[in-house]
Each structure stands twice: as structure tokens, then as C-alpha cells.
């Protein structure tokens, strides 16, 4: 079992109407691997991320997490669409962090972190609260537990969002441009938290424009453009010596 990669995408395509956003994407993410997805906007990287936890439904191809097909059940060589309940069960194990944080504004930081373990896993409040406080301490926000999101800075909100995702004890974390909505001076604190997660062995897929983070933290880097994987490899090599002209063109703009 441990040999199975955490994420396997096999010729995954996704269309919105006649607009094909993902064109036959194939890639693997191993356990404990940190993969950075980079590329110009509209290249399909966020859509691909959203397909992994079934926020978007793939049009063709197979996508599996931890050996389990996402969104469908396969029996007798036929695919059966999953019930919403089963899809929700799969999502429990996949944490997601959004560009716009999406914290619940009517709940305090602590309540945000406690919500899913209590409602989804049905755990007891006391245990969940202790764990939630530990998670907030882990992202450096123990003293902000009783603050509402509106009273936190962007960086603090995003760290609460990471703690909220971690509270479900996911086996995979997806980050959708986690620092893009932040003021420049707040980016560092969020990246620090993510780096710590990577060090602890979390499997992560990160859509980002932070090339420094990609170089230092990621195990692999995938460059996407126009819905296809243009180039992939070890971050330092891809960044230092891009092979494809589209990668070169993109990197010359962002580096």
C-alpha cells in the first residue's frame, strides 16, 4: 500500500462547455511530496486542483487519491457517479486552502477550526477544542483564537484557514494560490507555516507564483500552460534551465 502514489492523474481533461481547460493531464504525486504547480493565469492549474477534491467534475480521464478513484465508483468496468455523501467522505481527507481564505466570518478563529471535526466527524467538543487550540498555536495564532476573521490580518486569516484544513487530519493538502491575495509583507508568515508542514511530511500540491518557495520547499515543479503540462521536473533544474520556450518566456516574466 505505501507504494501507491498519493495522487495519480491519468489523462485528465476538463471542459466548461466548448472551452477545454484541461487537456489530458497525466502526473503523479508521491507520499510526502510537495509539488508546485506554476503557470500563467488561465493555464488550468486551479481547475486541476479543484478537480482533485471533486469541486469540479472531470470530463474524461481518471483521477485518484490514495488509490481511490475521485467522484466515481468502478464496478464491472463501468463508472458509477458517487452519491454526494460518498464524495463528502472523500473530501474529508483532502484539505484545501483558498486564495481568498474563505473563513466563516460569523465564527471566531477557534470556531472556524472546530466546525468540521464536530459536524463532519462527530467528535466530542472538548477533544476538538484542545486540538484546535494546538493547531492555532502551531500556526502561531494561539492568542487570536477568539477573534473574528474581520479582526485578523490577511496573513493571520490564511493561517487560520490552514489550521482549519489541518483539523480534519488530511492526508493531502491543496493550496490554491494561498499568498496571492496577501500584502507583500504578510506572504512570509504563510509560507513559513507551509514550509513547516512540508517538513513534517505532509503531501502537498501548491498552485503558486512564489518561485522562491518552489525552489526551496518543493520536491517537484510542474509548469502548465493552455491546459497542458508543458514541463516538469526538479524545481532547481526547471527554474535554472527551462527547456521549453513557453517555460522560458513565463519564468523570464516572474523571476
Amino acid at each position: 500500500m505505501p507504494d501507491i502514489p498519493m495522487v495519480v492523474a491519468d489523462r485528465v481533461s476538463k471542459s466548461f462547455g466548448s472551452n477545454e481547460v484541461l487537456k489530458s493531464i497525466s502526473l503523479e504525486v508521491k507520499r510526502g511530496e510537495v509539488m508546485c504547480l506554476v503557470g500563467p493565469s488561465g493555464s488550468g492549474k486551479s481547475t486541476f486542483l479543484r478537480c482533485i477534491n471533486h469541486l469540479e467534475v472531470v470530463s474524461s480521464g481518471r483521477l485518484s487519491v490514495d488509490g481511490e478513484l475521485i467522484g466515481y465508483r468502478e464496478a464491472n468496468h463501468k463508472l458509477y457517479e458517487m452519491r454526494p455523501k460518498e464524495a463528502a467522505r472523500q473530501r474529508r481527507d483532502i484539505g484545501m486552502v483558498f486564495q481568498r481564505f474563505n473563513l466563516f466570518p460569523h465564527m471566531t478563529a477557534l470556531q472556524n477550526v472546530m466546525e468540521a471535526p464536530i459536524r463532519v466527524k462527530g467528535l466530542s467538543r472538548a477533544g476538538v477544542e484542545a486540538n484546535a487550540r494546538a493547531l492555532l498555536a502551531r500556526v502561531g495564532l494561539a492568542d487570536r483564537a477568539d477573534y473574528y476573521p474581520a479582526h485578523l490580518s490577511g496573513g493571520q486569516q490564511q493561517r487560520v484557514a490552514i489550521a482549519r484544513a489541518l483539523a480534519m487530519e488530511p492526508k493531502l493538502m491543496l493550496f490554491d494560490e494561498p499568498t496571492s491575495a496577501l500584502d507583500p509583507e504578510l506572504v512570509g508568515e504563510v509560507l513559513d507555516v507551509m514550509q513547516g508542514l512540508a517538513r513534517d511530511g505532509m503531501t502537498m500540491i501548491v498552485v503558486t507564483h512564489e518561485m522562491g518557495f518552489a525552489r526551496e520547499v518543493a520536491d517537484s515543479l510542474v509548469f502548465m500552460d493552455g491546459g497542458v503540462v508543458v514541463e516538469s521536473g526538479v524545481p532547481t533544474e526547471v527554474l535554472a534551465n527551462p527547456q521549453h520556450h513557453r517555460t522560458q518566456a513565463f519564468l523570464s516574466k516572474v523571476l
Partner: peptide
């Protein structure tokens, strides 16, 4: 904020968060 960038706040073990 006092906490945050620079120091590796992340890897701190959860020593009695309360």
C-alpha cells in the same frame, strides 16, 4: 504581529496551548 515570519513557529510542538 508578534508571531509569524522569520522564526520557525510552525514546528513548535503544541506545548499546552491554553
Amino acid at each position: 504581529p508578534v508571531v509569524g515570519s522569520g522564526q520557525p513557529t510552525v514546528v513548535l510542538p503544541p506545548t499546552d496551548p491554553r
